[in-house]
Amino acid sequence: MLSNDIYHHWDFNGASTALANNEVFARELQRSSNHACVESSLSGLVLSMSSYVFLSFIDESIWLASKQALCMANAVLPSHQLPPQLAALLHPSNLPHPHSLVKITALGEAPPLADGLKFELHTLPVDAKAIVDGDTVIVYVSTTDARESSRVPQEVQMAVVERNGALYEGNYTKADALHKRITNAGYRVLRINNEDILARKYRIRLRGIDAPETSMPYGKEAKEELAKILDGKCLKILIFGEDRYKRFVGDIYCNGIFVQELMLKKGLAWHYTTYDKRLELDKWEKVARAKRIGLWASSNPEMPWAWRKNRREHR
């Protein structure tokens, strides 16, 4: 069967195997086309080509191998013998273009960056439902990103390929189970502009501010304001570390605007001086205090770190 011959030849660790196996791929396609019933091999073909198309987003050399394989498939299997979904999948024009691809970078320690900056994230559009509260948000970064491309676990890659095959076959129960495996590993397949994108999940704590907890006065307003700022936007996030709750601590920029500055000036957060000594944040908080904006309309608003401490002590 085509499924076994092709699927077991695939090597997720490098594009050279994909290039070398195009000859094998062509031979097996030819053998498949000689069968009285081509449909008997279609499921394996879909699974194989799904792996080519998916991994094309990760490395340009795999894109070249994929292009060759797709051309072979079109030459050997007449389009009139194929279901419309498979004919579309096998058409070379549907392969992602190289301009959207990135080269895989070697794993290893990044060079030291100034001021404690660890790395930078560029996110996919944020969903308002991903706003946890006024200082925490869940974001997703595409695995085509230069930093992410070399870090996708092999088991996640395999699950994505198997899920594509299950969706083609209409086995949605299996597809859902495979997507759960993907999400449990910290990834998700997002549908954006009619395109499936594999993305890594990050839980971000806004650096240097502390917003009221959701059940505190102005907690709901802080969450709603952050959602209003971030909803549907792609963000640049500078990551400086990780807190004890495994959240990445970072500065968030939305369309060039520093989000922490907005939250402080709107009176919906404190400058968290225990962990941050930046004078600008202190100045922005004082501006809101002077104008009695947001939570500063109250004469003595309770500080969220004191509120959390009281909650812990009275459990």
Score class of each variant (00 low, 15 high):
residue 92 P to W: 12
residue 108 G to Y: 06
residue 59 D to C: 08
residue 77 L to A: 03
residue 94 N to I: 10
residue 84 P to G: 06
residue 99 H to D: 11
residue 82 L to A: 05
residue 102 V to Y: 12
residue 58 I to Q: 05
residue 37 C to I: 13
residue 58 I to D: 14
residue 141 V to D: 08
residue 46 V to Y: 00
residue 90 L to W: 07
residue 131 I to H: 02
residue 75 A to P: 02
residue 118 K to F: 03
residue 76 V to P: 09
residue 38 V to F: 14
residue 136 T to M: 04
residue 34 N to Y: 08
residue 86 L to T: 12
residue 103 K to Q: 13
residue 71 C to A: 11
residue 89 L to Y: 05
residue 59 D to H: 06
residue 109 E to D: 14
residue 83 P to S: 15
residue 37 C to S: 14
residue 87 A to D: 08
residue 50 S to A: 14
residue 56 S to T: 15
residue 73 A to Y: 10
residue 70 L to M: 10
residue 43 S to P: 00
residue 50 S to R: 05
residue 38 V to E: 07
residue 125 P to T: 00
residue 57 F to K: 14
residue 122 H to I: 08
residue 116 G to E: 05
residue 93 S to H: 13
residue 125 P to V: 00
residue 138 I to A: 03
residue 83 P to D: 09
residue 137 V to R: 00
residue 136 T to Y: 01
residue 78 P to L: 09
residue 121 L to I: 01
residue 68 Q to F: 07
residue 45 L to S: 07
residue 133 D to V: 06
residue 74 N to L: 12
residue 115 D to V: 09
residue 91 H to R: 12
residue 96 P to C: 00
residue 138 I to M: 03
residue 130 A to K: 10
residue 134 G to K: 07
residue 62 I to E: 05
residue 102 V to K: 14
residue 54 F to E: 15
residue 102 V to C: 11
residue 74 N to R: 15
residue 96 P to H: 01
residue 52 Y to T: 09
residue 82 L to Y: 10
residue 123 T to E: 01
residue 85 Q to W: 10
residue 42 L to V: 15
residue 63 W to Y: 15
residue 140 Y to H: 12
residue 94 N to V: 09
residue 76 V to H: 07
residue 51 S to T: 06
residue 57 F to S: 13
residue 139 V to A: 01
residue 46 V to G: 05
residue 59 D to E: 15
residue 92 P to S: 11
residue 79 S to Q: 15
residue 119 F to M: 07
residue 113 L to H: 06
residue 110 A to S: 14
residue 38 V to Y: 04
residue 80 H to L: 08
residue 67 K to G: 08
residue 111 P to K: 03
residue 101 L to I: 06
residue 93 S to K: 13
residue 73 A to S: 11
residue 138 I to H: 03
residue 98 P to G: 12
residue 109 E to F: 04
residue 74 N to M: 10
residue 105 T to A: 13
residue 75 A to T: 01
residue 66 S to T: 01
residue 98 P to W: 12
residue 58 I to P: 03
residue 130 A to F: 13
residue 34 N to Q: 14
residue 82 L to V: 09
residue 107 L to H: 04
residue 37 C to W: 07
residue 54 F to I: 11
residue 130 A to G: 01
residue 138 I to P: 00
residue 106 A to W: 08
residue 35 H to F: 11
residue 89 L to R: 04
residue 123 T to K: 00
residue 104 I to K: 03
residue 124 L to G: 01
residue 83 P to Q: 09
residue 44 G to E: 03
residue 62 I to F: 14
residue 99 H to W: 08
residue 116 G to D: 03
residue 65 A to R: 06
residue 63 W to M: 01
residue 76 V to R: 05
residue 89 L to A: 10
residue 111 P to D: 00
residue 91 H to E: 14
residue 75 A to E: 04
residue 113 L to I: 04
residue 42 L to E: 02
residue 92 P to Q: 06
residue 108 G to L: 01
residue 127 D to W: 06
residue 134 G to H: 03
residue 55 L to P: 04
residue 133 D to F: 02
residue 49 M to C: 09
residue 33 S to H: 06
residue 123 T to D: 00
residue 61 S to M: 11
residue 110 A to Y: 06
residue 81 Q to Y: 12
residue 35 H to P: 03
residue 41 S to H: 07
residue 138 I to R: 02
residue 127 D to C: 04
residue 51 S to N: 11
residue 98 P to K: 15
residue 89 L to I: 02
residue 106 A to P: 07
